[in-house]
Amino acid sequence: MLVPYLGLGQSGKSVYKNLVTKKILLGSSSKKPEGIGYGYFINGKRVDKIAYDSFQGNSRYIKECCPCILQMYNSDGRLVNEGVRCTDAPVGWWKAYYTTGNLKESGQFKENDSGNWDNLCDRGYCGVKVGRWTYFDEQGKTLYSEDWKEGEFVRQLPEQLIPELWKVDFLLQGQNAKKLPLTLEQISELQIVSYYKNKIRPEPTIKLLIEASGHRPFVREIVFAELKSLDARKLLLASGIPADKQPRFTLEVFNSRDKVYRLFLNIVR
């Protein structure tokens, strides 16, 4: 289906024309042996095979969406969110809705005006907030707005009383640690820099996760001050996960709204 694109790009006009709209159902599916056949389920509810097979097409629809207007629905058929995407990367206008159907938030992500759709995230076109974002209550009243510039938070009007992180940097000796090889001992040397939207700035929570196939995940929750004394090698022993199982290490930072910032550590052995 072709529909006119009404979102506004960085220059005030959209670079996209006549985008296709694709609809997908959020959730999970499964099939279970029953007698000589199978029972089919979507989000825990029994469905027929036609509905099940249609649900399996979600991943194909997303892969074929570049760019398109992607609408996501819940199991009750209610629209959850919609916007311009290239696969799973937001690249244009965005709207999210309450279960009542009322608008919850609306805003704009940076449009890809280059015409090149390869390596979007590496080139700075992957979910980059720009312009004015507006948030509403369930009755449709405006709660507050935010201004963003090239993915950087500018201001919140009016400023909210709930502490909220908008970015977390993981640094090692001043360098971005996301792609750096680290030893277990260097985990305690990491510097975590938190950026808040307002003046209420409590200390976030940090979790270290150690995982490996066939083993129960090990989680240690700490505060910022404890990171410098963290002994990752001792925690690995406490996890019961053998070092030869190539355990995965992840740092998570939480804020009061449960948004999680993750750093998947590239541990060298």
Rank of each mutant, 00 (worst) to 15 (best):
D122W: 00
R123H: 13
G124Y: 05
G124H: 07
Y125A: 04
C126S: 12
G127R: 06
G127N: 14
V128T: 06
G131I: 06
R132C: 01
R132L: 12
W133V: 05
T134M: 09
Y135C: 03
Y135E: 02
Y135I: 09
Y135S: 10
F136V: 10
E138N: 14
E138T: 13
Q139G: 11
Y144E: 07
S145T: 15
D147A: 03
D147M: 08
D147Y: 03
K149F: 09
K149M: 09
E150L: 05
F153H: 06
R155L: 01
R155C: 02
R155S: 09
Q156H: 00
P158M: 11
L161A: 14
I162K: 13
I162S: 12
E164M: 14
K167V: 00
V168F: 07
V168E: 00
D169F: 05
Q173W: 07
Q175H: 10
A177K: 02
K178Y: 04
K179C: 02
P181W: 10
T183K: 09
L184T: 03
Q186V: 01
I187S: 06
I187K: 02
I187Q: 04
S188E: 05
S188M: 07
L190M: 04
L190Q: 06
Y195G: 03
N198K: 11
K199G: 01
I200Q: 12
E203D: 14
E203F: 06
I206T: 08
I206R: 06
I210C: 08
A212V: 11
S213T: 13
H215L: 10
